[in-house]
Design a protein around this nucleic acid. Sequence first.
RNA 1: GGUCCGGUAGCUCAGCUGGAUAGAGCAACAGCCUUCUAAGCUGUAGGCCCUUGGUUCGAAUCCAAGCCGGAUCACCA
Length: 645
Amino acid sequence: MIYLWNVWVGMYYFCQIIMNTILQQLKEDAAASLQTIYSLTIAPTEILINETKPDFAGDYSIVTFALSKQLSLKPDAIAHAIGEHLVANYSEKYAAFDVIQGFLNITIQPVLFLNYLQENINAIQYLPSTGKKIMIEFSSPNTNKPLHFGHLRNNFLGDSLSRILAANGHTVIKSNLLNDRGIHICKSMYAWQAFGNGETPTSSGKKGDHLVGYYYVLFENKMKEEAAAITEELLQNNFSKINESQINATEKLVIAYNNAAEANKKKDIKDKIVDIAKANTNYMQGAREMLLKWEENDADTIALWQEMNSWVITGFENTYSKLGIHFDKYYKESETYLLGKKIVLAGVDNGVLFKKENNSVWIDLTADGLDEKLLLRGDGTSVYITQDIGTAQLKYNDYQLDQSLYVIADEQNYHMQVLKLILQKLGEPCAEGIQHVSYGLVELPSGRMKTREGTVVDADDTMDEMIAIAAKHTNELGKTEGFTTDELDTLYNTIGQGALKFFLLRVDAKKKMIFNPEESIDFHGFTGPFIQYAHARTCAILRKENTNKNVDVTIELLKAEKQVIKLCEQFTQSIMQSAAELNPSILCNYVFSVAKQLNSFLAELKVLTAETEEKKILRLQICELAKNTIATCLQLLGIQAPEKM
RNA sequence: GGUCCGGUAGCUCAGCUGGAUAGAGCAACAGCCUUCUAAGCUGUAGGCCCUUGGUUCGAAUCCAAGCCGGAUCACCA
């Protein structure tokens, strides 16, 4: 695998091959034919070509209805004319044609497939370098709790996209923005100080992120308890625990609560009262004081913050490494928020932004159909988007990016739209390249996961469970004779991780998905292990016999043989489309179809005991091509391809 | 309420820049291991593609209206 990777990297940097797929050639040739026959100038991309349905003879079908309109001729007449022209003038590529109701079904010369087989058998070719530099930010966790199942989708998407973009010839920088500052961080710090008794990851044997997460949840629970008590007092018209300035408004809410008739309305009002109670708990006051001290650079607070952050980050690194993910660059919100503030203040001087009477800074986006947006609070502290402005500029200056992608859940669509718009208005050169890779949240059957309510599925637990299930399945099948303990562990990890990654990547990222922890993730059908298994089986054949001999390019191809090569040949298209749509699920569907086709091929035809020596060579090479295509696709999905399983 | 996203087989999802009889996987049913790994292969069954109207030779796909579900519109992050 390592060797192959080096080959790929080499190809990526030095290979300047212009990718010319069969489909592209057909489009170009069809466009040329139309030019010759009808003097019709049409871009090859405008020509609609589908794969020919299995019931008809042919490989690809040109759909001529649209042309019929432009040429004022019957579809069948055009189809016949193009078909005859193609077969007459490009006989080395097109063997035959057939016209059925406006569809021109073209049979590709087998030699084209056989040439592809020869040229790609040892290494599947990526696209030549574009010179384009793209940063992709993903994961970006808060440093107050461990990663959960939702992060897994984010991480796998980001990791896979970075690989896919690299395969498309771009230079990719993977970045991770740590949200390491703010009130949520102070909450876990406060609770640790109050209840931790000096507990550390070393003293407790707990993973750092889990340890800190425990105190975050503890804070929330304790604070909620206190808030519940205060709420009771408020409902009894006792307002002694809350801030004087809030008493009047709270009093009105309590009256409204008592007068409300409908249960829904009562609940809404009570929620508001609870919010006020929460803000007035000793816990929240403690956390706020801590944040203030942090911003004032209080030595003890900073020391505690650094220590607890380091625990979390060590924990994250452990998880990332288990997931097979690494980053080229870490950014920290604590290091960028001041830069953002500076840019915003400069924007005030330029007159792009404006101040309100209480000194808060705003941008007016009403002309763009959005609202006014706050960029700095009245007290001068920055809000969430302020640091994003700083980070965006910093990224651009660090790497001179052509494009800057953000893998962030779709709940932040508005936020990302606003961010780009603000940077544009500020005249920041980084603005144009910003693009949000939006994905749907992973939900449980019961609804959204919430750390504070303890309804999250933990990332580490999920991985461990997947590996355990992989081990169970593997042992039941009993095919791992001769494996060492280490090899077995690696295999369980490979399969468990493959199942999980494929499960999360196979669905269109834009769509939200529901994950039911009660139903285990499948290992059959449209899954990672299915594809890994096709790879392993093929490896088994190739271990027994391999060949360096060239295939006779005049050999006749059986349908099962041709189908495999034909699908493999569509690899380039598949990675181009995945990159264009920033969507790894396209690649998942593609590699599944290759694996399925390969399995059918292996079920139908003998390889090692083929009818003739020529057929054996051909089929061994088809195995090699398909195996490499599958391994390459899996690699682009961040999934390992085992040689035995 | 404004904006955005989704609604396809019992379940999970492809297909959506309009094109041939709407496809996979799971679950169900029926076959296939003295022959390269059965985590596999082959077959059967299962569909008012949310509704209504429009555009078109042709609509799951485009447009409009509506229904259902979700996100978002904070001096939260």
